[in-house]
Design a protein around this nucleic acid. Sequence first.
DNA 1: ATCGCTGGTCGAACCGGTTCGATCAGAAGC
DNA 2: GCTTCTGATCGAACCGGTTCGACCAGCGAT
Lengths: 339, 339
Amino acid sequence: MNIGEIARRAGVSRSTVSYALSGKRSISPATRARIQAVIDELGYQPSATARALSSGETRTLGLVFPPAGSHYTDMQLDFIGSLVEAAAGFGYDVLLAAAVGDGQQGLRRLVAERRVDGAVLMEIRLDDARVDYLAEAGFPFVTIGRTGEPERTRWVDLDYTALVRSCVTHLVQLGHRRIAFVNRSERLFHAGYESAHRSLTGFERACAEYGVVGTAHLCGDDPASGEDAIGRILAADPGTTALVTVNEAALGGLYRGLAARGRAIPGDFSVTGIAAGRWATAVTPQLTAADVPAIEMGRVAVELLLELLATPDVPPRHVLLTPPVSLRASAGPAPASDD
Amino acid sequence: MNIGEIARRAGVSRSTVSYALSGKRSISPATRARIQAVIDELGYQPSATARALSSGETRTLGLVFPPAGSHYTDMQLDFIGSLVEAAAGFGYDVLLAAAVGDGQQGLRRLVAERRVDGAVLMEIRLDDARVDYLAEAGFPFVTIGRTGEPERTRWVDLDYTALVRSCVTHLVQLGHRRIAFVNRSERLFHAGYESAHRSLTGFERACAEYGVVGTAHLCGDDPASGEDAIGRILAADPGTTALVTVNEAALGGLYRGLAARGRAIPGDFSVTGIAAGRWATAVTPQLTAADVPAIEMGRVAVELLLELLATPDVPPRHVLLTPPVSLRASAGPAPASDD
DNA sequence: ATCGCTGGTCGAACCGGTTCGATCAGAAGC
DNA sequence: GCTTCTGATCGAACCGGTTCGACCAGCGAT
């Protein structure tokens, strides 16, 4: 069931079948019909492998999957789903590379063995060895998130600095004057995760600008750590009345910690942050948050990458998104102060 | 930078390089060293595509990704992560197929274009066209979940019937006599999702056996539907004091609905179910539930599939898992009855 | 000294497509 | 009626590996 078989049955040469399929040369209607009939009868589909070998295109995109055992967020899942879907729309498949160890190994395989035409990276660090590797190798890639030197690469990202600032602004307008920031884990922060750093920057700047007391805390990506973080926050400053978080996975623990300490949300304590919309509406009370447009981001990433594959010389394009803060139920006016 | 280039620089034939790499024929130490030196110098890696074409193996596994727009659960994400990781451990990559439309199209592409050596299916229905298609095509595959006719295929699955039964048993032992069951969405149920049907069976049988009142409800896979389901449950039988759910995505809404109606968990109302352990610990109070061993299931799926690829004639193997119910905080003794 | 075996290597065919250049028939141009 | 052009098709080379059969040298056995 290869192209030779089709050619034989249709009484033409292999190249004629190929041209009939690709349309790259004109074929007489009669011949085309005969070939098509044979193809339909046998249910023939050309081998992707053979096609890739001769054409030099795999029509596959690589995605470096976040390290296993890490705590996946809804956001990541939405990225993957939308990447796959968007790629499928363009006739591309998505190949996942396990990011074992430092995440380099799987990526190198994809690239060096030429399994994919281009790559999408997520979980970007300010200083990211994977980005350097791909850039140096001249391999086409796009990142979801951006490094500390973003001008030379292609990416789609959230403006974490601005988003956290918006959350602080909202809280300040509600009268809060002592605000905590719950960042992601110490491990991720020290690894240089860009979102963790950029959101901290946004928090510190906003607090300074508004002249409010802001204390930042790192927090593991799980509910237990979230609960623990609440303890640390209230121990450090019992007068804290609100928090901003970018730690979706810890959110359940944050809520639980507040409840355990008798702080009602939003009566006694307000919570805001950045999270997938689905997650924000799953908790009680629903989270006032900037909803990560993960699906749009995945789609944009694919579009940027395919644009690069089609015309390798286009200058780098970037897309920086700043979704609005959706007002829900977890933030309210600051309680009367004891000051 | 292909094998011919290596051969030329090492002063040997292409086949000698190939044998040096694969070890399938003996090569003199001197020659081997010379070839290796050239390879190291140039950083040569054989093209996966060319290798696949001639060897007939892509060393890639296909995964049909759950339909887009559906609500992904943590479970699914863990499946994917563990599949990728387990596959990587055996030198395989994972290719995602978008399940657009009925999910057949992407699968057909993977199979007909021979992009993958084998496939993993999830979100299985009792009567599943994809399974029939693969079985008929004689294409190697494994399912996470099983159809209504499970003997002839290879799968790993949870024993939903037994797990729901365990939840009911636990509630009955706590004194509950009026129990609700929150199933997955009407759409999924009518599509024949096996977990939805098998868990309903388990619920009905257990209630009948213990002689307790059990009412089953379908519920959309989102928090809002969960909230709505609580309304329906309490309207249908205000005396309900506990529920069992397999609807992870609705859980937040279930909690919210109960809170809105003044039912404290677990004081007034107990909640149990089947969920990813991470999700179960994220909510407040933490969910007493059978924790889905998603990571193990993904690993087992890969092992079953690779076993099949290695020895195509092995008889079908199945793995049915029954994780224990983890006692957490969401279920307690039934409140004093008004009866 | 001869035979046979074996370890090491090479050349060629093959996997299943794509694509270039050449060929040929028929139509158009003059 | 002869050239020229165009549309349709074919054969061969190529993509980058793997693998089979053949060959040759060197060694041990007789």
